[in-house]
Amino acid sequence: MSDGFSLSGVFPASLTMFDEAGRLDEPASRTHLESLVDAGAHGLVVAGTSGEFVAMTSDEKVRLVATAVAAAAGRVPVVAGTGTASTAETVELTRAAADAGAAAALVILPYYMRPHREEVLAHLRTVGAASPVPVLVYNNPANSGTTELDAVDIGMLYREGVVHGVKSTFPTVHQVPEVIDETGPDFAVFYGGFMAPLSGLAEGAHGWISGVLNVAVTEALALYDAVRAGDLATARHWAAVIRQYRYLYTRRPLGQVGDLALYRAMLELRGQHGGHCRAPLLPLTAEQRAELERLMAENPALFGAARAAARP
């Protein structure tokens, strides 16, 4: 929107707190969001993939944005996930999120119907032209099942003035510098995976958006600061710590578990509220939770940087 738009830093893709019956728990969501801001997060992303946006109604998403804005209390910007498979619905939700106080909208590629490239571009042009706030493209073709946009496509949309940032969620990192080459300093490039945050930040990403930041925001902030300071040794240390979280999901020591269920259980084992996912997503079994607790006891870093330092 306005010239000079800029977002940067560590933005947790926050969990949405649901109660045991699957209802949106706004007080618990606010408490969790406040804890992320209190820990130093530079911004919040709500109603994204980790927020289970596909399982939420539009009304719930708007209520969640309002909850996040109240939790942030002007300290950090709130980015609202507003993308759907429908262009008209995305426009409507983006406007509502802006009215609720969102600083920007994160718009997933239109999903499921597998629109081709020109249809994806038309969707984003329509949303961007109608949006009262800056639009970040959520370039996640694996989850959306849609044609990816390459750096040249993103650069074209940037020069047209319809998009102002991107969350680049690919299994590789080379897209980050390529998008930077095609855009300007007022375009926000976020690394959006959890496999290689050091590489993404070192390649020039202005920040990192990920669900793992619900449980590793302190470590991510240390990594981000080290990269900005050019301190490679310290950056490698924190990247190694963060990999311990990833291994719980990628190496499957608990068997088949969802990443969101892992984060929720970890929060609870740290004495925080984890909430519930919406079906069909399942929580950890009692056996998986016991094994997670054992693994965390063996690796105090998994209790979080601050808590691990305080443990005997």
Rank of each mutant, 00 (worst) to 15 (best):
D3Q: 09
F5H: 11
F11E: 09
L15A: 06
F18R: 01
A21E: 08
G22K: 01
E26R: 10
E26S: 08
S35R: 15
V37W: 06
D38M: 04
D38Q: 12
D38I: 00
A39K: 15
A41F: 07
G51C: 03
E52V: 07
F53Q: 02
T57G: 13
D59M: 02
K61L: 04
V65G: 03
T67Y: 03
A68C: 01
V69R: 03
A71Y: 01
A73I: 01
R75Y: 04
V76H: 12
V76Y: 10
P77M: 08
A80S: 08
A80Y: 02
T84C: 09
S86M: 02
E92H: 11
T94W: 01
R95E: 07
R95V: 00
A105G: 01
A105H: 01
L109H: 08
Y111D: 03
H116G: 00
R117I: 02
E119C: 11
E119H: 10
L121I: 13
A122Y: 04
H123P: 05
L124P: 03
G128A: 12
A129K: 15
G145S: 11
T147F: 03
A151L: 02
I154C: 07
G155W: 06
M156T: 15
Y158C: 09
Y158T: 10
E160N: 13
K167N: 10
F170T: 10
T172G: 00
T172V: 12
Q175H: 14
I180Q: 02
D181R: 15
D181V: 10
P197V: 14
G200N: 05
G204R: 04
G204A: 02
A205V: 09
H206N: 09
G207D: 11
I209A: 07
S210G: 13
L213H: 11
L213D: 04
T218Q: 10
V227W: 08
R228E: 12
R228Y: 04
A235H: 06
Y245C: 01
R251I: 02
R251K: 14
R270Y: 05
R278V: 12
A279I: 13
L292Y: 11
E293P: 08
N299E: 13
G304E: 05
A310G: 01
